[in-house]
Amino acid sequence: MSHAHLAVVGGGQLARMMQQPAIALGLRIRLLAEGPDVSAAQVIADSIIGDHTVLADLEAVAEGVGVVTFDHEHVPPEHLRALADAGHAPRPGPHALLYAQDKGEMRARLTGLGTPCPRWAFVETPGDLAAFGFPAVVKATRGGYDGKGVWVVREAAEAAEAFASGARLIAEELVDFRRELSAQVARRPNGEVVAYPVVESRQAGGVCAEVVSPAPDLDAALASEAADLAERIAAELDVVGMLAVELFETADGRLLVNELAMRPHNTGHWSIDGAVTSQFENHLRAVMDLPLGPADPLAPWSVMVNVLGGAVTDLDAQLPVVLGDVPHAKVHLYGKAVKPGRKVGHVTVVGDDLADVLADARRAAALLTVGSPA
């Protein structure tokens, strides 16, 4: 087996996008992939096919490797502790990752830290939910993403599916928010931290549709508060690597923490083309305990638009159309089969004028999604 500097668990697009900065830094990644042709396995030669819930598969990918990091948060904590006991360094560690894996644990810990959160409670029965009050957002504490495992309920009957799911549930107030923000930081084991510009993320159907960096018209004090919040959470939870703190900016100008992600995150993809050091490079630097790179923007504005599976099923054939029409757009395709609504890539445009940058990024994404300009 070839010598590798770090193991990455999970073969999705986040692992795929770690490979480019790894090449530049001379770091060799060994991948635990779900199958031979998943997104990251197409570009990382040293791949093992296995299951992240099977300890033997995790031990195989970690063999001879000091550092283990992740494309997702779903590795069982007991397996991570076993890897740590065997002398490997899971980064982030199981003590931190728990708060990205379990929304109930996250809410309890953040509340204990005095972090601003929506009003919330554990709910085990319809009676608990009725006592909490409507409208509410009911969430499975584990396993939900991109709108899955989340139910907006305005009356008791709408919660039937949530209670039937068998999942442990929490209820949160339905926040009257003006927009969603994301504050990202990279943190090393020694506590060195770098904060990225606070961005606005716009959702469609529970999935991130586009990201604008920096968040337009964001009050300077609020931007500073968001970055400080992310740095404090990273330190308090001892996160190593990238941390994304997804926030609500409320209608009355407050910040509330919505979700945490302890890995590179969709709201940071703009940084590949729009920042001095991308989130993927800084994730690698952080987990390998290398000095972090500056997160300063390269242009006044960066807009990232996700490419979700649509009418265009042959992305290869459509690529020359996009590059010819919007040559300055940076196109990132993930090597995935097109399925309706599936994230198959993203496009980023950077520049001086927000209206132009936004229009060009949307146009490029539309050409890859529906085949015609938006």
Rank of each mutant, 00 (worst) to 15 (best):
A159N: 06
R168N: 13
L174H: 10
R168D: 11
E155S: 03
A157Y: 02
E200Q: 11
R187V: 04
G206P: 01
A159Q: 12
S201F: 02
A167V: 01
A209P: 00
E200C: 02
D176E: 13
V199K: 09
Q184E: 11
G166Y: 07
E180K: 05
R179N: 01
N190R: 10
P197M: 01
C208N: 12
A162M: 11
A160H: 12
L174M: 15
A186D: 03
A171L: 13
V194P: 12
E158V: 04
A164D: 15
R188T: 07
I170Y: 10
A159S: 13
A160T: 13
V175A: 01
L169N: 06
E173Y: 04
R179Y: 01
P197T: 00
A209E: 13
G205Y: 00
R168S: 09
Q203E: 00
V207H: 06
R179S: 01
S182A: 15
L181D: 01
A159M: 13
V194S: 08
G205M: 08
V153Q: 00
E161D: 15
L181M: 02
G191I: 15
E180M: 02
E172F: 00
A167G: 12
A159I: 08
A167M: 04
V194I: 15
F177N: 11
A156C: 10
C208E: 05
Q184C: 14
G205P: 06
A157P: 09
E200A: 04
G166P: 14
V194T: 11
E173C: 13
A157Q: 14
G206H: 02
V194G: 09
S182G: 04
E180N: 02
F177C: 08
A160R: 13
S201M: 07
G166K: 06
G166E: 07
S165D: 07
E172V: 02
N190W: 00
R187Q: 08
E161S: 15
R202D: 04
A195K: 15
G205C: 10
R188N: 09
F163E: 12
G205D: 08
E158N: 13
R202W: 03
A186Q: 06
R202E: 04
V199D: 03
E192P: 14
V207D: 12
E172L: 04
G205S: 00
A160K: 12
N190K: 03
A157S: 15
A186G: 08
L181V: 05
A164L: 07
